[in-house]
Design a protein around this nucleic acid. Structure first.
Lengths: 210, 210
DNA sequence: TGACACGGTATACAGCGTATATCTATGGTC
DNA sequence: GACCATAGATATACGCTGTATACCGTGTCA
């Protein structure tokens, strides 16, 4: 039943199926589902667990940093395969067993790398959503009109109000094309891992701040 | 009317009011609202804009890095004052004028600091949700039972399954107390700003990767 | 044989967003 | 002053949601 729910959602839906739709797809009355799941929230909980359990195991070779990087990219691959999953994950209220297992896996690598519990703590906070392989683009950059002259006109109006946005959009490499979200994700992830490594090597402690 | 909607939501609600509830609170029929707003989505759009417009102006003194940091913390202060705002922001489909203005403000500081358009582009991606002053804690760490012996028992079971999580929770400074989310936010923010500054000084370019 | 739990059903309720049609009061124009 | 368009409120209704409650048939076990 959870499997069917995941299938249903995967078929293009950005949201988990309603109880009625799932019931119909199972050839069953809506209320029958309540014998298997407490309520709709619990259904979504189960769907998320199903996805998180499928995160591929990754090797621990090469030290904590590449190991954590690989693991997070594996989580990303799994979660992005389900278009509804990121939103569903964001709306969970508590960590489930597979979620805790994933966090524990990462933290274990950090401890094995010799990081202090203090730094592990802050590192996990810093990674927070990114450790699941996604970062919500809160506001996607507005799409430009199709035609060449409409595009120019829109840019002109835009440019006076938001000159720096336009400057970036018109001069950064590839910025006019679709953004490579995998590359952007890796960039930010490496930024964070870099910083964590640097804090670790510098003997960082939250007592000393900075 | 937008003001009333924001008020209503602020009164403890984690979600924007329904059309019916807002109408009732205004002493008016639900359908009357549709003369002022296209639909419920547009209502939430307006509420978000109202909040974003209230982000305090901050000074540009001291170079791009402290300026950006101050600005982001100002956004954080404003947005966290409205418990419903982070979720509402995450569900918007397009950037509104005040959202674009905020992004433009930050990018302007980056350009003034001499960063390449390439790096500005990636930096904005890396900051993505953080530039609004929040980071969703996707899975809050589970709450522990109240009593001392229940707490110990829970920890014991937990420890065998998730040893590294427990290790962190029991040995990191302050980890047993409530996390200081402001400090965690600043930690991650500084990690990112650090990395961006470092890339900038090192003449980073996306062609060269790294 | 009886008890009981499990899984499915039928019905109903309260809430949601909103399409449609209708009424009313206001302000501008001839 | 008469007319009319328009803005804003209304009333009603539709289809959707989650789910409380009550009921029923089937299998297992004492």
């Amino acid at each position: 039943m959870l499997a069917r729910a995941v299938e249903l959602a995967d078929e293009g839906g950005l949201e988990p199926p309603s109880m009625r739709r799932l019931a119909e797809s199972l050839g069953v009355t809506p209320m029958a589902l309540y014998h298997h799941v407490a309520d709709h929230e619990a259904l979504v909980d189960g769907m998320v667990e199903t996805v998180l359990e499928a995160i591929a195991d990754t090797s621990t070779e090469g030290g904590w940093r590449p190991a954590v990087r690989r693991r997070i990219l594996a989580a990303r691959a799994e979660i992005l395969a389900h278009p509804w999953a990121t939103r569903a994950i964001e709306t969970r209220h508590a960590a489930s067993a597979p979620a805790l297992a994933h966090m524990d896996w990462i933290m274990r690598r950090l401890f094995e790398g010799g990081l202090s519990a203090d730094l592990v703590h802050h590192a996990m906070h810093a990674l927070s959503t990114r450790m699941w392989g996604f970062t919500r683009e809160v506001f996607p950059t507005p799409t430009m009109p199709e035609g060449a002259e409409e595009r120019a006109a829109a840019l002109a109006g835009f440019a006076s109000r938001y000159p720096s946005i336009v400057r970036m959009a018109t001069t950064a490499p590839h910025a006019s094309a679709e953004c490579d979200s995998d590359a952007e994700f890796a960039f930010a992830l490496d930024l964070l891992l870099d910083g964590i490594e640097r804090r670790h090597e510098g003997g960082w402690s939250s007592e000393l701040r900075s």
